[in-house]
Each structure stands twice: as C-alpha cells, then as structure tokens.
Amino acid sequence: MTTLVAVEARPRLRDVLAVGRPAFWIVSVVPYYVGILLATHRLVPPVELWPRLLVGAVVMGPLLWLAVLAINDAYDLPGDLLNPRKSASPLLDGRVSVRQAKQLAVGAGVAALLVACFVGWVFTAGVLLALVLGWAYSVPPVRLKTRAGFDVASNSLALGAFGPLAGWAAVTPELGGFPWVMALQGTLAAIGLYLPTTLADLPADRAAGYRTIAVRLGASTTYRLGYAAWIAAATLSVLLAALDMVIPRSMLALEIVMVPVLVAAYGRLIGPGQTFRQVITLATLFLIPCAAFALTYTGVL
C-alpha cells in the first residue's frame, strides 16, 4: 500500500512580500532617519557612514517587519478571518500556511540579528529587544495584543522611541547625548496614530474575543485618549521650539501655525467609520513639520 504525503509548496516571493507589508517599512525607516539626523546634524549623512546606515535600514525595514508581522499573522489568523481589512492576507487563502509564516518569522528574525551585527553592538541589542517585544505582542501566553494598554505601549514605544534610538545607535554607540525628549514626542505621536488603528479593527477584534484597548475601553474613550496624545505631542513641539531645545526657535512660527491644523485634522479625519486611508493622510500631514525640522536642525533653512 502506498501512502501519499502532502508537501507544502514554498511561498512565492510576492506572497512573502505581502506578509512583510512593504508599505509599512517607511513607518520605521522615517524615525530611523530622524535618529541619524539628530546624531549627525546633517540632512545627508557623511558618505563614509552610508554602508552601515543602509544596512541598518534593511534591518529596520524589511527584516524586522517580516519577523514581527509573520508571527502576528500566524497567531491572528482566527481573528483575521473575521476582519475584512485582512482579506488580502496570504494566510487566509492558504498561499502561506501558519507553519510557513512561523518559519518566515524565525528566519527574518535571525537574519535581522546577523545583519545588525555589521552596524554595531548597541544597534544589535536594540534589534533583539524589538524582536522580543514584537513576539511578546503576538505569541501566547504573553500576547500583549490582548492586554489593554500593553498593546498600545508596545507599538508606540517601538515606533516612537526605538526608531530614532536605532538611527542614533547606527551612527554612534554612545547614547548619552541622545535627546530623550524627542523619544517622548515620537511616542506621543505614535500613540495618537496607533489608537485609531484599534478603532478600525474594533468589530473584528470584539468578535474574535481580543481584548485590545478599544475593546476594553470602547470607541469613545479610545478616541479621546488618541486625541489627547496627539494634542500633547503637538503642544510639546511648540514648547521645545519656544525653549530652543532640539527644535530650533526659528521653527516656532511654523509650529504655532501647524499645531491647530494638525489638531483640527485629527478631529476631522479620525472617528466613527474611519479607514486606514484617513490615518495615513493624518500621518502625511505630520511629515510637514517633520520636514521643516530636518531642514532647520541641519542649517539648510
């Protein structure tokens, strides 16, 4: 008697990329660049740093995202089946199996650590912490995603604080001169941008039994928390410019103009029935004062 053993087909490259979500890479690469800018005081870093910084960008973009998103997709599959926003996921129609997603996560995580070694030991230590946090967010029994508050903290700190710190560490292992107040502002802005994503997923998360912060607190309270964090981040930027602390005082007039615009945009774009497109629009508006900061901080303007 012959026994037939089913063999899984290897995932196609386009399906692996779909799991890694290339559109997300900029979300960590931009804060990474901000850290480089803070460390070098230059819009374009010195040429001799380019190889190391580009290697760091590969880690911060494709490798880290694939490592944390693949493991998240593997453990979120039951909930993703209920979420229309995830309908294009390769795991939903079997193009990538749960086992393969876990293998991709392990492979990308190991690759991220190995490649990070070419940047520096402080950078590598940060990448290890980011991987641990990313896995803790998704993998039981810790699964921070289902622990209201920890879901927000893990994502916001990873993007708002770790990104700039990684960029700084890619330039120098000495963290003593890092402007920690910028990590605070980045984290507040990240909270303001992350909480709306929990609102977009609220129906699916509630149906799946995931106790995210939006499920635990409700849409109204979650919205108000996000709005408060957004206002705090915008207000802090005005204060820093007024004090000429990191943000040059020459930016004060622009900050005074942009803060009401950003606050009003949040109120108009974020709320019941919002889509991820509206969150992206808000994040794009935030890049305007960020670009002005880059130009003034480096002395271009």
Rank of each mutant, 00 (worst) to 15 (best):
L13R: 15
R14C: 02
D15T: 03
D15H: 06
G20A: 13
G20T: 13
G20E: 10
F24G: 04
I26Q: 09
V27P: 00
S28Y: 14
S28A: 07
P45D: 02
V59K: 00
V59T: 03
M60D: 03
M60G: 02
L69M: 13
A70H: 04
D73P: 00
P78L: 07
G79Q: 15
L81Q: 07
A88T: 13
D93L: 00
Q103V: 12
A105V: 12
A108L: 12
L113D: 01
C117S: 06
G120I: 15
T124H: 11
G126C: 06
L129I: 01
W135L: 03
A136L: 11
P140A: 05
L144Q: 03
K145L: 02
T146W: 02
T146C: 05
A148N: 07
A148T: 00
F150W: 10
N155C: 06
L159K: 07
A161V: 10
V171G: 00
V181Q: 07
L184I: 15
Y194W: 05
T198H: 04
L199W: 11
A200M: 11
A200T: 09
D201H: 10
L202D: 14
A204T: 14
A214P: 01
R216S: 01
L217M: 01
L225F: 04
A228I: 13
A232F: 11
A234E: 08
M245L: 09
V246L: 11
A253Y: 07
E255W: 13
I256N: 01
I256F: 05
M258I: 03
V263G: 05
I270F: 11
I270G: 02
P272V: 09
Q274I: 10
Q274F: 12
T275W: 10
Q278M: 13
A283S: 10
L295M: 11
T296G: 07
L301T: 11
